[in-house]
Design a protein around this nucleic acid. Structure first.
Length: 107
DNA sequence: AGGATGACGTGCA
DNA sequence: TTGCACGCCATCC
């Protein structure tokens, strides 16, 4: 993934990077912000690509509409994702973000 | 060039 | 209320 290859994925990364610490957002929210409301899956796919990009994307701050850490298993270390969230003040229980409404970051 | 896929979301039974 | 099935659109094979 080259920097000049600005694509949908890059836009996702940029938005995800805007998420402040201690806050989380959903794939659908990001997708809508990009104009493709129904392409939430693309956002998830993009996050998966964040693996091989030089850009640092707080993928751990992005969860699904239910506050579930659906993608944690996809990361190098799923447990680390939860630890990162808790380190930012977000309570995670059973792959689920507690007080999701409070930490949710709307567009 | 075409077909299959996916870290989701919403609707319906 | 919980669970199942369909749709979506960019990316990958």
């Amino acid at each position: 993934m080259k920097p000049e290859t600005y694509s949908f994925i890059m836009q996702v990364f940029d938005l995800a990077r805007l998420i402040p610490e201690g806050r989380v957002t959903t794939y659908g929210t990001i997708a809508r912000a990009l104009g493709s409301a129904k392409s939430a899956r693309l956002v998830g796919k993009a996050m998966n690509h964040s693996h091989g990009t030089i850009y640092k994307v707080p993928a751990h701050r992005v969860v699904n509409g239910s506050g579930l850490l659906t993608g944690k298993f996809h990361l190098t270390d799923p447990d680390q994702m939860q630890s990162l969230l808790e380190a930012e003040g977000i309570t995670v229980k059973d792959n689920q973000v507690q007080y999701f409404k409070k930490v949710f970051c709307p567009p």
